[in-house]
């Protein structure tokens, strides 16, 4: 059977759409929508904005989202500072600094984040007779996030520093600037511009990693988003359903998706500027 090429293409498209439609219909008809709605989208939690019923959103946002963001910002900020120090150590002319930084980075990149959080939150207080960093057990867990984030950010920042052309350093030094002044005034500002997209990615990873703090156990007003969502499964208007987990997922995505879009926009912009 000889068909024209365009006819054949139209036919194969039609078949693909038909298959998709069939699968959707099959799923749609066989799913128990009432049960799904009751267990994942319980009206008591989702609420109904038209009647002014906000469900359980206010608690999830004012406690969970707020704390998740606070922990993320602290971990990111402190991790960034430590990461810069480690990156500069890795590029130091002093071999001992390079070894220490390399050892640190390899060590923390080679461990599960969860394990580091556990060690900081429970291991350190045991080892030091109940001493904990500021913020108590939660603070200790955040320190775990900081230590790991710094290791990853150090590698990113080092790559950024090395991407700054050598001529920039030479120009600054030939104007009489010291090595330290050159780093602060000329190299780091350019390096940061280069690593803004990967650092934003690191921020997104940290938002998700704060969920690991779940293992610590919190005071009620310290709970981050995943912990409070888990608690709501046990006791809240939506207890006994997975609704709060779905709500938490939606809230995470509302934060992470715009940021990942921002990263790809920044990357495209940098590509063009080159």
């Amino acid at each position: 059977m000889a068909l024209k090429r365009s006819t054949r293409r139209t036919l194969s498209r039609a078949v693909l759409y038909a298959v998709l439609l069939g699968v959707l219909l099959l799923v749609g008809l066989s799913a128990d929508w009432a049960t799904i709605r009751a267990n994942f989208f319980a009206p008591a939690g989702i609420g109904n904005p038209f009647t002014g019923d906000w469900g359980t959103w206010p608690d999830l946002i004012t406690v969970g989202v707020k704390n998740s963001l606070i922990y993320t910002v602290i971990a990111f900020g402190a991790g960034l500072v430590l990461g810069v120090v480690l990156a500069l150590m890795r590029l130091s002319p002093v071999a001992a600094y390079r070894w220490i930084a390399t050892a640190y980075i390899e060590f923390f990149r080679g461990l599960p984040v969860l394990l580091v959080v556990l060690v900081m939150a429970f291991g350190i207080p045991i080892a030091f007779n109940g001493w904990t960093p500021p913020g108590g057990t939660v603070g200790a867990g955040v320190v775990g996030l900081i230590l790991v984030a710094a290791a990853y950010m150090a590698e990113t920042i080092r790559a950024g520093i090395q991407a700054v052309p050598k001529g920039q350093t030479e120009a600054a030094r030939s104007l009489g600037m010291s090595a330290g002044r050159t780093t602060v005034t000329v190299v780091l500002p350019q390096a940061f511009r280069i690593v803004i997209p990967p650092l934003t990615n690191e921020f997104v990873l940290l938002i998700k990693d704060t969920a690991l703090l779940f293992v610590i156990g919190f005071a009620a007003d310290q709970r981050e988003l995943t912990t409070i969502a888990r608690d709501f499964m046990a006791s809240s208007e939506t207890a006994g359903t997975a609704t709060s987990l779905i709500q938490a997922s939606i809230l995470y995505l509302l934060i992470t998706l715009p940021l990942t879009r921002l990263v790809s926009w920044l990357e495209r912009k940098q590509q063009k500027a080159r």
Partner: peptide
Amino acid sequence: RSRIGMVFQQFNLFPHMNVLRNLTVAQQKV
């Protein structure tokens, strides 16, 4: 070095600073 001016083949201006800042930064800091 601050008394020896150097001009490079690739210019090596500081791209993150405007022209005025390129000219003033070392005067102020050095």
